[in-house]
Design a protein around this nucleic acid. Structure first.
Lengths: 278, 278
DNA sequence: TTGACAAATGACCGAGTAGTCATTATTATA
DNA sequence: TATAATAATGACTACTCGGTCATTTGTCAA
C-alpha cells in the first residue's frame, strides 16, 4: 500500500513537469527506484494509475474546502477564510493543480473526465452551500452566477501559484477576493446561470450516491492504510455505526472529528459526514 | 501555403478530440487525405506544426479582442460589446479554446509555453487599455485586479461553450458580465495585484519587439497567402510605408482597415496598427 | 540449513511512433 | 511532344511505448 503512494507521488511530479502522455512508465519506475514489473504489481495499467491519482489528490482538495465552508466561522470572516484555505491548498499542492486543473488528459478518457467533473460538482455544491449561509434568500436568483464568479477568481488568481514561486501575501489576497465576492453578491442584478442550466451542464456525469455498501468498502480501504492509532479505532467504530446507528449524534460527530485531522482520512471523513447528514 | 492551412485545421480538430501527444502525424495526414511525406514538406517536425498553430489560431483571438477594445463604441456599451465578441469567439472557435486554453503541452516545451504566454500578455494589455479608457485615474490602483477578474469571468463562463453545445443567449451573458465587471470596478477597495507583481509574472517571457525587419517579414509571409485582391495591394502599399512613411495617417489607417476585415489578415493588421501607434 | 512462498526483476514482445528518402506522378516550359 | 522541375508518395528505419513473464532475490518457519 505504501508502494502505491510512492508511485502516485512520483508520478504526480513527472506529470506536472511533462504532462501525462509524455511521461512513460519507465520514467516513473526510475524515479521511484523500482523495476517496471513492480509498477504493474501495484497498478494493472497506466490508466488505472491516473484514475487512482485523481481520487488520491483531488479528495484532499474537496474535503478541505468543504470543511471550511461548514465550519463555525463568523459570517464576517467566512469568505476570507474560504479563500485563504483555497489558496493555501493551491500553494501546497501546486503540482496537483498543474496536473488536474490544467492538463486535459480528459478529452479522450471519458471515465477520467467524469471523475474530475464529479469532484468539481462537489466543490460547486460546497460553494453554493456557503453562499446560502451567507446571503440566504436575497441571493436566490444570483447564487449560481456568484458561484461561477468565485470559481473564476480561483482559476485566474491560482495562476500566480501554479506557474511561479513568487512569495505572496495570502491574507491580503483572501481579503481582496472576499471583498470582491461580497460586492458582487450584494449588487448584481442580472443573472445568467439558472438552475436548469446547471442541471444541463452537470447532466453527463451521473452523481455517485452513497450506499451503505460503498461507504463500508471505502472505510475498509482506508483502515487498511492505517497503523494502530486512535484514528483507526475511530474508523472501526464508525464502520459499525453505518449499519445500525446506536451512538448519539455528538459522539458520531466527535469520531468524525478524530479522523478529519489526518490528511489521508479527510476524504472518508467528508463522505461519512455526508452520509450522516451533518 | 493552402496545404499548411489544411493541415492546421485538421490537426486542430484531432487535438481537440484527443490531445496533442495522443494524436499521430499519421492520423493528421489521413484526415487531410495526403501522404505522410507531404506533411513533412509543409512542416519540418510535429513540434513546428504546433508552434505554427499557436500563431495561426491565437492571433485571431487576440486581434479580435483588441479591435473591439479600440473601437469607437460608447462607454456605456463597450463592456457589453467586449464580452459579446469574446464569447462569440469562444463559440466559433471552441476547438481552439479546448486545445490552447486547456491542454498543457506547454509544461515540457518552453518555447510553446512562452508563446502562448506572450499572447495572453497581449490580451491582458488590451483589457487594461479598455479599463483605462472606461474608468481612467479612478481605477489606477485596482486596474490589474479588475483585469484578473475579467479573465476569471472569461475562464469560468467559457466552460459553458467549450464542453457543451447548449444554446446560450450571448446578449444576456454579455450584459450580466458587463454589469458584474462594472460593479467591481466601481466598488472594489482592496487591491492585490500590483504593477511589480505583473512585471514579475510576465518576466520569463521576453516581449517581442516589433522591428522594421520582423514586420516586413510578417507582411511578406501574409502576402504569400493571398490571391490578387484589394487586400493584397493594400498590404504591398503598407509594406512600402514601413521603411519610410510618406502617406498621411488617415490613409495608412484606411489601408489597415482594408485588410482587417479578412480573417487571415487580422493579425498582421493588429501588428501594423501597433507599429504605427494608432 | 533447507525449502516453500511471495516479492521483485528486467529482458523481451508487438504495436505504434516521428521522421527519411528513393521512387513516381504532375505540372510547366520549350 | 519531349524535357526539366516540382510535388507527392509510402515503404522503410530506428526507436519508444505499455505491458508480460520466466527468472532471480528475499523472507520466513521448520
Amino acid at each position: 500500500m505504501l508502494k502505491k503512494q510512492l508511485i502516485m507521488e512520483k508520478a504526480l511530479e513527472l506529470f506536472s513537469e511533462q504532462g501525462f502522455e509524455a511521461t512513460s512508465v519507465q520514467q516513473i519506475t526510475e524515479r521511484c527506484g523500482i523495476s517496471k514489473g513492480a509498477f504493474y504489481l501495484s497498478f494493472k495499467t497506466k490508466d488505472e494509475l491516473v484514475l487512482s491519482m485523481v481520487d488520491y489528490f483531488l479528495q484532499q482538495f474537496i474535503a478541505d474546502i468543504d470543511h471550511v465552508v461548514r465550519s463555525s466561522f463568523a459570517k464576517e470572516v467566512l469568505l476570507v477564510e474560504f479563500y485563504k484555505s483555497i489558496f493555501q491548498a493551491f500553494k501546497k499542492h501546486s503540482a496537483t493543480a498543474r496536473v488536474f486543473f490544467n492538463e486535459k488528459v480528459f478529452a479522450k478518457k471519458k471515465e477520467l473526465f467524469n471523475k474530475v467533473n464529479a469532484y468539481e460538482i462537489d466543490m460547486s455544491k460546497s460553494i453554493i452551500y456557503m453562499l446560502e449561509q451567507l446571503y440566504g434568500e436575497a441571493l436566490q436568483k444570483n447564487k449560481y452566477d456568484v458561484m461561477y464568479c468565485i470559481k473564476g477568481f480561483m482559476k485566474s488568481y491560482a495562476q500566480l501559484f501554479i506557474f511561479s514561486n513568487i512569495p505572496l501575501d495570502l491574507d491580503q489576497l483572501a481579503k481582496s477576493l472576499a471583498e470582491k465576492t461580497d460586492i458582487i453578491a450584494r449588487h448584481t442584478t442580472i443573472p445568467f446561470i439558472t438552475e436548469e442550466l446547471i442541471q444541463l451542464v452537470n447532466k453527463p456525469c451521473e452523481q455517485e450516491i452513497i450506499t451503505k455498501e460503498s461507504l463500508i468498502h471505502l472505510i475498509e480501504q482506508t483502515i487498511e492504510m492505517l497503523e494502530e492509532s486512535i484514528e483507526r479505532e475511530s474508523l472501526e467504530l464508525l464502520k459499525a455505526q453505518v449499519g445500525h446507528t446506536t451512538y448519539s449524534r455528538p459522539i458520531i460527530k466527535g469520531l468524525i472529528e478524530n479522523i478529519r485531522l489526518r490528511q489521508d482520512c479527510q476524504w472518508v471523513a467528508y463522505v461519512i459526514n455526508k452520509y450522516f447528514k451533518f
